[in-house]
Design a protein around this nucleic acid. Structure first.
Lengths: 227, 227
DNA sequence: AACTGTAATTTTGAATTCATAATTTAGTCA
DNA sequence: TGACTAAATTATGAATTCAAAATTACAGTT
C-alpha cells in the first residue's frame, strides 16, 4: 500500500507552500463550501501537519482573497459574489489583453504550433461536448499565451485572480450559445495569435473575458447571487 | 515608562497584519537592504514579538514578491531589478488605465473637486521643488482615482504592485525634465478626469506610467542595474 | 598559508504549550 | 417553556520548545 488514503505526509517544497496549494484546491473545487468556516483542526489532522504551517498557509490564502480571517473567530471561506465577479473580470480582461499583446511580440513559431495543437484538441472536446476536457485544454491555452508574454509577474497576477473566478467555472455550466460563442472567439484568438496581431488579439481577449463574465454572472444569479 | 524606545508591543489589528505593514515599510524605505537577509531574530526583538507571527508575516510579504524565501535558508529582501521593473510597470499601466475609465464612470462632483485640490497642492510642491511633498500628494491623487473606480480588488492589485516599485521612487531622484513632463501629464489627467473622458484619461495614465518606467529604469541603470 | 573534514553553534521549520477570547452547555428563575 | 446567567468547553493567537538543517569555527594535514 504505497498509495493509500487519509493521513499522508507531504514531501516536496515547503510545507506551507504545499498547504497553500491544497487549500486553494479545496476551495476552488467547492470541497470547502463558500461562506463556511475553515475547519483548521480537521485539515491539520487530514494532512497530518500541526497548526503552525496550516495557519501560515491560511494567512497567504487570505491575502489572495480566497478566505477571510476574522480576529479571534478563525478563517472563513470567502463566498463568490456578483460584485466580486464584476470587480475581478474587468481586471482579468485588461491583464489578458496585455498578455496577448506581449505574447505577439515574443512568441516563437514553435510555441504558436503548440497552441494550435491545443486549440485543435479543444475543438475536439467541444464537439464531443466534454466540458471537463474543454476547460482543462482551455486553461492550457490561456497559460501558453501568458507564458509567451514572458512576464512572470503578469502570470502570477492573472493566476491569483483566476483562482477566485475558477470556483464559478468549476460549478457553472455554460449555456450552449455561450459555449459556441466562446469557441468562435477562440478561433479568432488562435488566428490573431498566429498572425502576431497584438492589437486585435488584445481586443478579442478582452471581449472573450466580457463574455465569460456575463456567463458567470447569469449562472450566479440563478444561484441566488452567491457562491 | 508608558512610552519608551526599542521594544514596544503592537496594539491595533492582528499582530501579523501589523507586521506585514511594518515589514513592507522597512523594505520600501530601504532600511532592509535589497539582497540582504531578513534578520528574523532581530526584528522579533525589535518589535517585541515571537517568531510565530513574524514568520506568518514573512510568508505573506513573500507572496507579494517583496521578499524571497529560501528553504532552510531564511528570507531575503528581493532586489529591485530592471527586468522586474519592465514586468511590473506595464501591468500597473493597464490597471491604472482601467482605474481611470472606471473612475470616469463613477466619480462624483465632490470627488472631482477633492482631486482638484490635491492637484493644486501638488503643483505647489512642484514649484517649491519639494520632492517629498510632491510624491506624497501624487500618491494621494492616484489613490483618489482608484477609490473613485469603486473596485476594491483593483485597488488591492495596484497597491501590491506599486509597493514593489515604490522602493525606486523612494530612492530615485527624477530628472528635471521628467519631473516637468510628469506635471504636464498630471494637468491632462486632471483635465480628462474633470470632463469624465474615460478613454483619454486611460490613455494618458498609460503614457504617464510609461514615463515613470523609463525614469526608474534610467536611474536603476545608473545604480548598476539593481536595487 | 591553503585545504579538508569534523565538531560546535546557530538558524530554520514545525510541533507543542499556554493564555485568552469565544462559544457552547448547563443550570436557574420567572 | 423560555430567557438569562454562569460554568465548562473549545478555538484562537502567540510564545516556547524541539529536531533537523545550515553555517561557522577549528584542528589537522599538506
Amino acid at each position: 500500500m504505497t498509495e493509500n488514503s487519509a493521513i499522508r505526509t507531504i514531501p516536496r517544497k515547503s510545507l506551507h507552500e504545499e498547504l497553500v496549494d491544497r487549500l486553494q484546491m479545496l476551495i476552488i473545487t467547492g470541497e470547502l463550501q463558500p461562506g463556511s468556516k475553515v475547519p483548521e483542526k480537521d485539515l491539520c489532522a487530514q494532512f497530518g501537519v500541526s497548526r503552525t504551517p496550516m495557519r501560515e498557509a491560511l494567512k497567504v490564502v487570505a491575502s489572495d482573497g480566497l478566505v477571510r480571517l476574522e480576529p479571534n473567530r478563525g478563517a472563513w471561506v470567502a463566498p463568490l459574489t456578483i460584485s466580486e465577479v464584476e470587480e475581478v473580470f474587468p481586471i482579468l480582461g485588461v491583464l489578458e489583453a496585455l498578455s496577448g499583446e506581449l505574447a505577439c511580440q515574443n512568441i516563437t513559431d514553435d510555441e504558436i504550433e503548440a497552441v494550435r495543437a491545443l486549440h485543435a484538441q479543444m475543438i475536439k472536446s467541444y464537439e464531443a461536448r466534454d466540458l471537463e476536457a474543454y476547460f482543462s485544454v482551455n486553461q492550457k491555452i490561456h497559460r501558453a499565451i501568458l507564458k509567451a508574454a514572458r512576464n512572470d509577474t503578469l502570470t502570477a497576477s492573472c493566476q491569483a485572480l483566476s483562482l477566485r473566478m475558477q470556483r464559478a467555472r468549476y460549478l457553472a455550466n455554460m449555456s450552449d450559445e455561450r459555449w459556441a460563442a466562446a469557441v468562435e472567439e477562440h478561433e479568432q484568438i488562435m488566428d490573431y495569435l498566429a498572425r502576431r496581431d497584438g492589437k486585435n488579439l488584445a481586443r478579442t481577449l478582452l471581449a472573450h473575458m466580457r463574455g465569460k463574465q456575463a456567463s458567470v454572472i447569469k449562472w450566479l444569479k440563478s444561484q441566488g447571487g452567491q457562491v
